[in-house]
């Protein structure tokens, strides 16, 4: 049968394109314009790539970048396997599956600043159950004074908040696997590990791709929760890139350097997201 070829469908994409242009592309272009100028109110001076040079050689920002990669890496290493494990253990059907889904969805409904506040109180050694409990067990825990404790608390807070997302995505992926696969595995007397390795994990690939990308991008741009919990401290130990950027753009009102910083930040996120995407979809294109 001869197919009719028409490009009219492209017009249907036009509203989205206009929306994205005004919400993302135009602001990004403006930031590029800012990044090559020194701006004092209405007065502007062209400085070329000077801000980029300054940002790239700023040791505090380099430390923040390293911190950011360590944080995002830790988040992915903990949340992805934990999310898969939780999804595998969840009831497949019945009222308990509904209860589990509701409980898992709860942390995702809490606003970011509220999450920070919850953990700020929860971790306090005097009135917080978590902080008080650790101290009662003999651990000298104080997230406001000890950088390691602060890191531990920020990570734990993120794991509490976002593991559910991976678990829910994986759960939906697992439910979409037809029973025939499990029946075939049962006939072959496949072990639980073999079922997971050769049936469940390959079938979870697409949802895991979305989960990993979302968690990477979110954790790499994290701002509110650590800001409320630790304010970037003690010292600069939990100051991540977005916090450093906000301080520069809003606190110091250095729009030019903040613009250059934003572009570098954006390029890093774009590169790493593309690498993740390519690595995870590469197998399909072979």
């Amino acid at each position: 049968m001869k197919k009719t070829k028409s490009n009219k469908a492209w017009f249907l994409v036009l509203p989205v394109f206009i929306l994205v242009a005004f919400s993302a592309i135009v602001p990004l272009m403006t930031v590029v314009n800012y990044s090559i100028q020194d701006i004092f109110g209405a007065t502007r001076y062209f400085v070329g790539v000077e801000w980029y040079r300054e940002i790239l050689n700023n040791s505090r920002l380099q430390d923040s970048l390293v911190r950011q990669f360590v944080f995002s890496g830790s988040v992915l290493l903990i949340e992805v396997p934990l999310g898969i494990a939780v999804a595998l253990m969840m009831p497949k059907a019945g009222k308990w599956s509904v209860v589990t889904l509701l409980v898992l969805a709860l942390p995702l409904l809490v606003p970011l600043n509220v999450v920070g506040t919850i953990w700020q109180i929860f971790g306090r050694a005097d009135i917080g159950l978590f902080g008080w409990g650790l101290n009662a067990l003999g651990m000298d825990y104080n997230y406001a004074a000890n950088p390691m404790d602060a890191w531990f608390t920020v990570l734990l807070m993120d794991v509490w908040h976002w593991t559910s997302l991976i678990a829910l995505l994986c759960y939906s992926g697992l439910r979409a696997i037809p029973d025939a696969y499990y029946q075939a595995a049962s006939i072959d007397r496949a072990s639980n590990w073999a079922v997971f390795r050769y049936i469940q994990l390959p079938k979870l690939k697409s949802v895991l791709l979305i989960g990993v990308l979302l968690r990477f991008m979110d954790s790499f741009m994290i701002y509110t929760e650590p800001f409320v919990l630790t304010g970037g401290g003690p010292g600069n130990s939990t100051t991540f890139l977005s916090q450093a950027l906000t301080k520069m753009a809003v606190g110091q009102f250095d729009i030019g350097p903040a613009g250059a910083f934003s572009i570098i930040y954006f390029l890093i996120i774009l590169l790493v997201s593309w690498l993740f995407y390519t690595a995870m979809t590469h197998g399909d294109s072979k």
Binding site: T30, N33, I36, Q37, I39, F46
Partner: peptide, 8 residues
Amino acid sequence: WMAWTTPS
């Protein structure tokens, strides 16, 4: 408002 320059 977009602070254009010739190079950008």
